[in-house]
């Protein structure tokens, strides 16, 4: 019988990305136990963890890709969707909740017209909730990128967004 290629499972990835991931994995000695550290570094570099990147990580660490996916979907820090240019995070810790974080969140949802975990069509903003950032004295707290906004009210949402309009 004639030899034919039936390797129907192919994962396409850019060469420079492949090299980067291999580099990261190697820096952790390609140990399966370092999976979470590797994912942290990989997400730090790529911004998110799409399927093909998880495939490469799986192969490099010799872990089943299903297991890698199982880990990625377990931890809320990991995301398979790209974040916006200005990721907005609303703290929904208890102190912020007690001081009305939910109303602030609703206002962001309304103004951006996206749900939590989504990114605006223009890729500019993404919206996420996070648990206590340890700034309870400033509750309710909103983060845009690394910048912290304290004592945010629903009325203040527009002002925050305006800051990034021209950027």
């Amino acid at each position: 019988m004639e030899e034919k290629s039936m390797s129907d499972i192919k994962v396409k990835v850019k060469e420079k990305d492949l090299i980067k991931i291999q580099e990261i994995c190697k820096s952790f000695d390609n140990k399966p136990g370092e999976l979470i550290n590797v994912l942290h570094k990989t997400q730090e570099h790529f911004g998110y963890l799409p399927a093909e990147i998880q495939e490469v990580v799986a192969q490099e660490l010799d872990v089943a890709v299903a297991k890698v996916y199982g880990v990625v979907t377990f931890y809320s820090f990991f995301t398979m969707l790209p974040k916006g240019k200005f990721p907005i995070s609303i703290c929904t810790g208890t102190a912020c909740y007690v001081r009305g974080a939910d109303n602030v969140l609703q206002e962001f949802k309304r103004q951006l017209n996206i749900e939590v975990g989504e990114t605006t069509d223009d890729g500019k903003y993404s919206l996420n909730c996070l648990r206590c950032v340890g700034a309870c004295g400033l509750a309710p707290v909103v983060l845009v990128g690394d910048k912290t906004y304290g004592r945010v009210s629903p009325e203040g949402v527009k002002e925050i967004l305006e800051e990034y309009q021209e950027k």
Binding site: I36, N37, L39, H40, F74, Y75, S76, F77, F78, R131
Partner: peptide, 8 residues
Amino acid sequence: IRYGAGAF
């Protein structure tokens, strides 16, 4: 140092 990844 080992990093958590957001799981209470």
